[in-house]
Each structure stands twice: as structure tokens, then as C-alpha cells.
């Protein structure tokens, strides 16, 4: 990855982070932790990897994304707004009655959202269906899916984990946002999910483990995954819940946090 590209992605990620903190802060409550931990991933997908056109959100041969941890919607909305899928002003309508930006992703409300999610554990199955539909239609694109680490405790993920290799879905690239926290505490205390690399490998996936805040590592893993001939790929991202939001980063209470707009502005200022 070229130095200029890296700098550009870092700049874009910072802008997405600012928009996300601002949107949730404007509302006063939201899923800040799990939104912050996937900002680098969303940045590299939407600015470097995905074949999309903000002017034609439903372009037939686009790459698709299923944000299975749908509560991280605000980070995706900030990304989509910044890409031009809809006006940035919409971000201040987050979760207000009549908004097009509900807390959990809704494909029928928001331009650029490819699948409705929010009931944890269901998105990977949907992503398999989208990838199968692409194969039937001979569309040579990728389906990306992002699941949470707490979400990985849902059994349906493991039904999907069996199915994707059986269907040889090499175009399916999934990510686990391994920020090690869930609502009630540390994942290792509530219900351990280790070893994720061994688990997904044993299910027949090409498996990678990267620092989810490092663009160079994400870049290489995604490019390697795209070369897969017959297996789906799972990229386990070590991340920090709340990353880059000063008052939330690494806090066990940051899953769904109440904070003031003033706090949000301070956190944004702290980003420099």
C-alpha cells in the first residue's frame, strides 16, 4: 500500500469517526463502542475495495455489505453519507421518528444498505444468500459481512459457517470485529469464543487475523481473501471497542452509551 493512499485512508477514517461521534452525540445515546471499532474496516471497504456507485445505490453488479452487527449502523451511515449516498445532514436525524437512519440497518430505508440486520446472528446467512444469488446471475463481485464477537455466540452463525464452504462461496468475505467486549462484560468472562482462527479454519474457511485498525494489514488480508478459489474467507480483526472516542475507548460501558453533545465535541477535538 502506497504511503499517500494510507494517509488518505487515515484522513477518511478520521472524518467518519468524527461524523459518527457527532451523530450519536447529537442524539445523546447510542452504540458508540461497536461503531468505533469498525471504522477502519468500513473506510478501506468503501474507499478502496468495494465496487459501488453512490449515485446508483442499487447498481446490479456492485459489491455488497451485510453489517450483521446492525447496531453499528451509525458508523456505516457516516461512511455512506461521506461517500455521497445521501446528504450528510441526515446524520442528525439518527433514530428520530420518521428518520431514514434507524439504529439498526434497514435496506428499505437507507440508500446504500444492502441488507436489513439487527437481530444478531442472522446476517451471515443473508450474506450467503446474496452470494448465491450473485453466482446464479454470474455477477463476479464480493459479498462482505461483518459480525460481532459477542454476536458470534449466536448459534446461527455456526450453521452459516458450515454452509458457506459447502457452497464453495469464495466471493464471500466475512469479518469478525473482535473487540473482546460485549454488553455484560469481557467476552472471555461472559462466554468465551476463542480460538476464532481455529474455529473458522476447522469449519473450512480461509482464515486471517489482523489488527483491525491497521490499514496495511486489512488491505493485504482482503486482497488475499479475494484471490480465494473455492473457500469463503473470515478475517478476524483485533480491535478496540470505542476506538478513537476519548471518553468511550476501552470502556466496558460503551456498548450503548449516554453522553452529551458537549462530550462529543470534546472527543472530536481530541482527535486533532
Amino acid at each position: 500500500m502506497l504511503n499517500d493512499d494510507l494517509k488518505d485512508l487515515e484522513k477518511k477514517a478520521k472524518e467518519i469517526r468524527i461524523k459518527t461521534i457527532d451523530a450519536i452525540g447529537f442524539l445523546g445515546v447510542g452504540h458508540i463502542g461497536g461503531a468505533m471499532s469498525i471504522v477502519e474496516l468500513l473506510t478501506i471497504l468503501y474507499y478502496s475495495k468495494m465496487h459501488i456507485d453512490p449515485k446508483i445505490p442499487k447498481m446490479e453488479d456492485r459489491d455488497k455489505l451485510v453489517l450483521s452487527k446492525g447496531h453499528a449502523g451509525p458508523a456505516l451511515y457516516s461512511t455512506l453519507a461521506q461517500k455521497g449516498f445521501f446528504p450528510v445532514e441526515w446524520l442528525h436525524t439518527l433514530n428520530q421518528g420518521g428518520t431514514k437512519l434507524p439504529s439498526h440497518c434497514d435496506m428499505n430505508m437507507t440508500p446504500g444498505i444492502d441488507m436489513t440486520t439487527g437481530s444478531l446472528g442472522q446476517g451471515l446467512s443473508s450474506a450467503i444468500g446474496l452470494a448465491l444469488a450473485m453466482r446464479i446471475d454470474k455477477i463476479d463481485r464480493n459479498v462482505f459481512a461483518i459480525i460481532g464477537d459477542g454476536e458470534s455466540q449466536e448459534g446461527q452463525n455456526w450453521e452459516a459457517a458450515m454452509a458457506a464452504p459447502q457452497f464453495k462461496l469464495n466471493k464471500l468475505i466475512a469479518f469478525t470485529d473482535y473487540n473482546k467486549m460485549q454488553i455484560d462484560g469481557y467476552t472471555c468472562d461472559i462466554m468465551p469464543i476463542d480460538d476464532l482462527v481455529e474455529k473458522w479454519s476447522a469449519f473450512g474457511w480461509s482464515t486471517y487475523r489482523v489488527n483491525g485498525h491497521n490499514f496495511a494489514e486489512l488491505d493485504k488480508a482482503i486482497d488475499d481473501a479475494r484471490k480465494s478459489k473455492d473457500k469463503p474467507s473470515m478475517i478476524i480483526m483485533d480491535t478496540i471497542k470505542g476506538k478513537g472516542c476519548s471518553f468511550a475507548e476501552g470502556q466496558l460501558t460503551n456498548h450503548n452509551m449516554v453522553f452529551t453533545y458537549e462530550q462529543a465535541k470534546e472527543a472530536i477535538a481530541a482527535l486533532g
Binding site: 446467512s125 444468500g129 446474496l130 452470494a131 452459516a160 454452509a163
Partner: peptide
């Protein structure tokens, strides 16, 4: 090419069917 047997995993079947539909199919 249009038939998918997911094994004894009904939740995944309905999830995959929903994805097929989101991709324009009628499962």
C-alpha cells in the same frame, strides 16, 4: 444450480432464503 440444501439448520435456511431474495430471487 438453483437448489440449496443447508442440512439440519432451519434458521440458516430461512436466513439464506432472505439473502437470495435480497439478491432478486424467489426462494
Amino acid at each position: 444450480e438453483r437448489t440449496f440444501n443447508v442440512g439440519v439448520a432451519e434458521a440458516n435456511m430461512v436466513g439464506v432464503a432472505s439473502g437470495l431474495s435480497a439478491g432478486g430471487k424467489i426462494p
